[in-house]
Nucleic acid binder design. Structure first.
Lengths: 137, 137
DNA sequence: CTCGGCCTTCAACATATGTTGAAGTCAAAC
DNA sequence: GTTTGACTTCAACATATGTTGAAGGCCGAG
């Protein structure tokens, strides 16, 4: 019976609500929407309305950022989530996120191991030196 | 026999040399020095001179950045390296870096597992709703 | 009908991580 | 002795990730 706009049921949360639920500032919620991490419908008076998943996505994103993923990369991975994601949709996303994090950690470990097992990898190959400004000590 | 300044032996590489060895721009090398990732001595004419380790540190830092560590955090970890690091010094640094990366990945995995095993964790607890601007669908 | 509160957009600011360009110094080469 | 090339500093710009504040809209309460 409301004057209501074309907003799917479930999309009832304001920016402030989502911010509180996700533990971030309202400005951050708007930022994430701008960058495609979350999606909103608009009321007749142009206010954003989110569903519960928005806060969830943000919380996951904050943890994902800690392993070096950019907002853009996270948004790309989230793009695999349909409107009403089933558990296996979340599974795929979770696997993609963790795989990426592990790949980066593995790269770090591998590189460090190389350095330690074969010191040459961390040395300058050809003896390139500075042109003769005084100082070869 | 040179006009040479007080530069320890081994510190013979210019900014350009280190940049080439590390695969980064000279501007980045200066940036990293400013932020304590690497250290330089200066020639009598004020030019930076690095040793081989500078490029090594930079290459490690670039990989570490990919797992979410900031330049500051990496510099802090590198602070444990003495002037002429022995293998065990590098070991401690390597362990610190990998541990941090794994802790962050573990946090991500744990959080995602919680979401999947207990859906409520990703729902809004108390039904906070937006005040009545039209639109409850 | 005004008031308070939450919303909107937009621009400015802030930090991290660099890059680019201008202006000047220095040493080596011609 | 002038030119050349790499170096120096410093300021401006660029991108990512946000925050803050100004100016205004919309709604329910008193």
């Amino acid at each position: 019976m409301s004057i209501a706009a074309r907003i799917p049921s479930g999309f009832t949360l304001s920016v402030k609500d989502v911010a509180a639920a996700a533990g971030v500032a309202p400005s951050a919620v708007r930022f994430y929407e701008q960058h495609g991490l979350i999606t909103a419908y608009r009321t007749t008076s142009d206010q954003r309305r989110f569903d519960d998943l928005a806060a969830c996505r943000i919380k996951v994103a904050k943890v994902a950022q800690r392993v070096g993923l950019t907002v853009r990369e996270i948004a790309d991975i989230f793009a695999a989530l349909p409107d009403d994601p089933r558990p296996q949709d979340w599974n795929r996303v979770a696997v993609a996120l963790v795989d990426e994090a592990e790949a980066r950690t593995a790269a770090l470990r591998t590189y460090l191991d190389e350095i330690r097992s074969d010191r040459r990898l961390c040395e300058i190959d050809d003896r390139v030196r500075a042109p003769e400004v005084p100082d070869r000590s």
